[in-house]
Simulated assay, not measured.
Amino acid sequence: MFTAEPNTYIELLKKFPPRPIKSEKELLAVQEVIDSLLDSREMTSDKQDYLNVLGMLVHEYEAKYVQIPDLSGVELLKALVDEFGLKQKDLVPVFKTESIVSAIFNGQRKFTVEHIEKLADFFNVSPSTFFSRSS
């Protein structure tokens, strides 16, 4: 467990030497170190550099082993609603009525430009995330 707060880059390296991540268990160990550093009282440039190295290792592992579904449109909206613990009625400010929300969710209606702009503001994401990615 990573408990002490070393101050220099070399001390950080000695405490938890960075290595390529090859398993979920190793990923969790690295994430614990990252969380510990982010929770520390002071963010020094050495800690920031070390966090950057650990972040690159996590990114490399996730790019290789973690499948992130390519969601867009209604699929993305449903995932966001689920992630935020919302109900369809919570989207009435975006779509104006519950019947429009229901029609969107059931595939009976498409997003309008206004819907996409309001959804982007509501979820604080880029409007482009709601467009389908067709090849």
Rank of each mutant, 00 (worst) to 15 (best):
90 D>Q: 08
104 I>C: 06
133 R>A: 07
112 T>K: 08
113 V>A: 11
85 G>A: 07
87 K>Y: 14
21 I>P: 08
85 G>T: 05
115 H>W: 01
17 P>L: 10
133 R>H: 08
86 L>C: 09
75 E>I: 00
108 Q>G: 02
91 L>G: 14
130 F>Q: 01
124 N>T: 09
89 K>Q: 14
112 T>L: 06
99 S>F: 05
87 K>H: 14
117 E>V: 04
24 E>L: 13
20 P>W: 00
106 N>F: 00
50 Y>K: 07
34 I>G: 05
51 L>V: 06
85 G>V: 10
32 E>F: 07
20 P>S: 14
76 L>I: 10
67 Q>E: 13
17 P>W: 04
132 S>P: 14
133 R>G: 07
26 E>V: 01
60 E>T: 10
90 D>I: 03
111 F>C: 06
71 L>Q: 06
101 V>K: 05
76 L>F: 12
46 D>M: 07
39 D>A: 15
29 A>W: 02
76 L>S: 11
18 P>S: 02
98 E>Q: 15
64 K>I: 00
76 L>R: 15
94 V>T: 12
28 L>W: 03
117 E>Q: 12
46 D>W: 07
45 S>E: 15
77 L>E: 01
86 L>Y: 15
57 L>V: 00
56 M>T: 06
84 F>L: 13
61 Y>M: 01
63 A>N: 14
109 R>M: 05
97 T>A: 09
77 L>G: 01
38 L>N: 15
91 L>T: 13
54 L>I: 04
73 G>I: 04
26 E>R: 02
15 K>L: 12
68 I>D: 07
97 T>L: 09
120 A>W: 06
